[in-house]
Computed example of a mutant assay.
Amino acid sequence: MFCTRFRVSQNRFGKDLKSGWSRPVPCGGPLKERCAAMEHRMQLGANLRRLRKERCWSQEMLAHFAGLHPTEVSRLERGLREPRLRTIVQVASALNVPIQALLDPEPSPEPEPVT
């Protein structure tokens, strides 16, 4: 697993500036917790997108049923947001699934029996 991080530089007043993305670095050490959080957000996003598409809903429809803004649903699916518990509950309620269904890894498909 790889993570990206910001290169930070300072302007002449000592204020930090984000100067762009650095190249991906292997997870480990101080970045390990950051990588784990990113994996959880990406898992939530993948499950959210899968459950939404199973119902043939658009992001706008899910946002309407969950009482969220459509951009919030988009950010959740792309793993850009660390959602609040309230948001997770709203989305799970709108999809009529337990909260655990949003957080667990996707179930692996059953292998087809060979005849």
Rank of each mutant, 00 (worst) to 15 (best):
P98A: 07
K32D: 09
P26G: 07
R75H: 03
F2M: 10
T71L: 12
R12S: 11
C56M: 12
F65P: 02
C3W: 11
Q10G: 13
M38N: 05
V8Y: 13
P109I: 05
A101T: 03
Q100H: 11
R34C: 11
R81E: 12
L48P: 06
P109Q: 13
P24L: 05
R49K: 14
M61F: 08
E72F: 04
P30V: 06
M38Y: 00
M42C: 14
R52P: 05
Q59H: 09
L102M: 11
C3S: 15
S9I: 14
M1P: 14
A94E: 04
T4A: 15
S108L: 10
R34S: 13
A36T: 07
F2G: 09
V8K: 15
G45S: 07
F65W: 04
R41K: 14
L31I: 02
Q59L: 10
A92Q: 03
H64R: 14
H40E: 09
D104M: 08
E39V: 02
P30E: 10
R81Q: 14
L62Q: 02
C56Y: 07
M42K: 15
F2N: 12
L62E: 01
V97N: 08
L103A: 09
T87A: 06
V73N: 05
L17G: 07
R41H: 04
D16E: 10
F2H: 11
N96T: 11
V89L: 12
P26E: 09
G67D: 03
Q90T: 03
G67S: 07
P98T: 05
